[in-house]
Amino acid sequence: MLTSIQNPLVQKFRRLQNAKERRETQLFLLEGTHLIQEACAVNYPLMTVCYTSKWEEHHPELRSIVLENCDRVELVSDEVIKSIATTVNPDGIVAIAPRLAQKKPPIPAKLTIVLSTIQDPGNLGTIIRTAAAAGADGLWVSQDSVDLDNPKVLRASAGQWFRLAMGVSDNLHELVTSYQQQGVQIVSTTSHTQTSYWDVNLTKPTLILLGNEGAGLSDDLAALADLQVKIPMETGVESLNVATAAALMLYEVRRQRS
């Protein structure tokens, strides 16, 4: 059993809590039973897994699967798990996984969501979860958004991170234009229109374009939209959380198409 937080392996886990380290090593952390289950369900490779004896006792079947699919497995103390986890009360298992070339969203596609400069990992994870649930073909984020494999993004996605095609773009203008040229309509939200989001035709191939939590979409991206729609709100309410706006838009698409 590993008991020292000074152990080189433990230090490796701890360093991966840092975004720069994850980018340089092309590795990231998976934390918690549910994420490990989802990773195993889609055969996502795990390099190293650390778990406690209590976790091992409560999850014998998953432990067997992990042993079959992981390069290295270590039994560790509660103190070690707490030091390598990013949550206050970890449930007893943390893994290192490789950053793989994720399946990119198709161009064109029936339903795609594109996010510009999203900063809150909880928002991004929630949008990933919702996009998967609503049947989106994929999701793109701008390069200056929070990392897709940020631990909070992974947790907020509730495991759907492994099931949705996702990509990072260093030029959203070119990306959105490429969808447009393939016949996909571009829809963005704004308060400066009288057209509600439920009053437009979303049954045709659609790309939903959403911007930063505070600043919204840049003018050059907003100008690409074929349709600008509003989400009706009571007087005095300026805006909705971007994850909420994404959910409303995605499920209006699903409603119209069903």
Rank of each mutant, 00 (worst) to 15 (best):
I118Y: 00
Q194I: 08
S218D: 13
A246K: 05
D199C: 01
A85G: 11
M1C: 06
E234L: 12
L248N: 04
D220S: 12
L30Q: 07
N89R: 10
G159Y: 02
C70S: 15
V94P: 02
R257L: 08
M1L: 08
K230G: 11
I65G: 00
L202C: 10
N212P: 10
D91S: 12
L2K: 03
A223N: 08
G135A: 03
E68H: 08
D144Y: 04
S4W: 03
S191H: 08
D220K: 06
A158G: 04
E68Q: 14
P205Y: 01
D170C: 08
K204R: 15
S258A: 13
L29R: 07
L75Q: 06
A132M: 08
I81F: 08
I127F: 09
V200N: 12
D91C: 13
G236K: 03
S178F: 05
I36H: 00
P45M: 10
Y197P: 00
Y51F: 15
L210T: 03
I127Y: 09
P45Y: 09
S178I: 05
I81M: 15
N43T: 13
D149I: 02
G211Y: 05
C70D: 11
M47H: 14
A136M: 03
E68F: 00
T195E: 11
Y44D: 06
A215F: 10
N212T: 05
Q102W: 14
V253S: 04
Q37P: 09
R163G: 00
C40M: 15
Q228I: 07
S191W: 02
S169Q: 05
D120S: 11
L139E: 00
A97Y: 04
Y51L: 15
Q143D: 12
T130P: 02
R72I: 01
M166I: 06
R23V: 10
R99K: 14
T235P: 09
R129D: 09
N7K: 07
G159S: 03
V66E: 01
R63W: 04
N212L: 03
R257V: 11
T87N: 03
I118D: 01
T48K: 11
I81C: 11
S169V: 01
G122K: 09
V94A: 07
S191Q: 12
G159V: 07
S169N: 04
Y197F: 14
I208R: 01
M1D: 06
E56S: 12
T86Q: 13
N201M: 06
D144N: 12
I127E: 09
Q6K: 14
Y44H: 11
T87V: 15
N89M: 08
L124Y: 10
S218H: 09
L172M: 06
E74T: 02
L240P: 00
V141S: 05
L224V: 03
D78C: 03
K12G: 13
W140S: 01
I93F: 02
S188I: 02
A97Q: 04
P106T: 02
L30C: 08
T3C: 11
A215M: 11
T86L: 13
V242D: 07
G138M: 01
E174Q: 13
I186S: 05
R99P: 01
S188K: 01
A136C: 09
D220T: 11
Q180Y: 03
L67Q: 15
Q160A: 14
K230S: 14
P90V: 07
D226Y: 00
